[in-house]
Design a protein around this nucleic acid. Structure first.
Length: 212
DNA sequence: CAGCGGATATTCT
DNA sequence: GAATATCCGCTGA
């Protein structure tokens, strides 16, 4: 028989490790988003690591700004940013406090509250698309900048909690280049996903925009 | 399926 | 002014 997923929250110590250790270890973990209409739960299937001020792909590469200040705070907190004038993306801060590393949550499988996620994701043609992509994931879970700086290690019932769930065996974890990252930062194979999972987003190389 | 334009916050030049 | 850790709806094979 299969052991039931562990419903206890991840600890501060879980996130207080190098981001390249934490990122693959997050696959199979469960996010609980508490909304006024009820809980939405998601099993993580795809993430990307961003390693603070050493990493040209990271928002923290050029130091602290008003937008990225949460990345410099305690591990286990939620960093939400607004991008392309329309979308939110959600990260979990990792590494020692001040390291400014984080894991971008790119995709997952909705395991609870699918009707709430569908109501927010009207363009999704099936449930596998509800959270296939970082902005889709944030939209499905009703995540916006109101969640920026909240503690993902806090108990279930707070706005967002990450549970132990069921970790993914290393032989089922694949990795490759990060999606949509420009310049030197694109070379690192710091995107991690679960092999053969239908909710993982398609890889897209970086495409520069044309001028208006 | 590939390619494109549009939405327009945030940061850096 | 220009680029970006994106997605959507449209076009045309």
């Amino acid at each position: 028989m299969i052991a039931a997923p562990d419903r206890t929250p991840l600890t501060r110590e879980f996130f207080d490790r190098p981001v390249l250790d934490v990122a693959p270890d997050l696959l199979g973990r469960v996010l609980v988003r508490s909304t006024p209409d009820g809980p939405i739960e998601l099993r993580l299937t795809e993430v990307e690591a961003y390693d603070g001020e050493n990493d040209p792909g990271s928002h923290a590469y050029r130091g602290r700004t008003a937008r990225n200040s949460v990345m410099f705070a305690q591990p286990g907190h939620v960093y939400v940013y607004f991008t392309y004038g329309m979308w939110h993306c959600m990260n979990l801060v990792c590494g020692e406090e001040g390291r400014a590393s984080a894991v971008l949550l790119r995709a997952g499988e909705i395991t609870e509250g699918a009707e709430l996620a569908r109501a927010r994701r009207l363009s999704a043609r099936n449930d596998k698309e509800l959270a296939k992509g970082p902005a889709r994931l944030a939209t499905a879970l009703d995540v916006d900048r109101a969640l920026n700086g909240t503690d993902a290690c806090a108990p279930t019932g707070t706005p967002l909690t990450v549970l132990h769930g069921t970790p993914t065996p290393t032989e089922q974890v694949l990795n490759g280049p990060r999606t949509g990252v420009s310049g030197a930062g694109g070379v690192h194979p710091w995107r991690f996903w679960i092999a053969n999972d239908p909710t993982v987003s398609p890889y897209r190389p970086h495409t520069p925009r044309r001028r208006a």
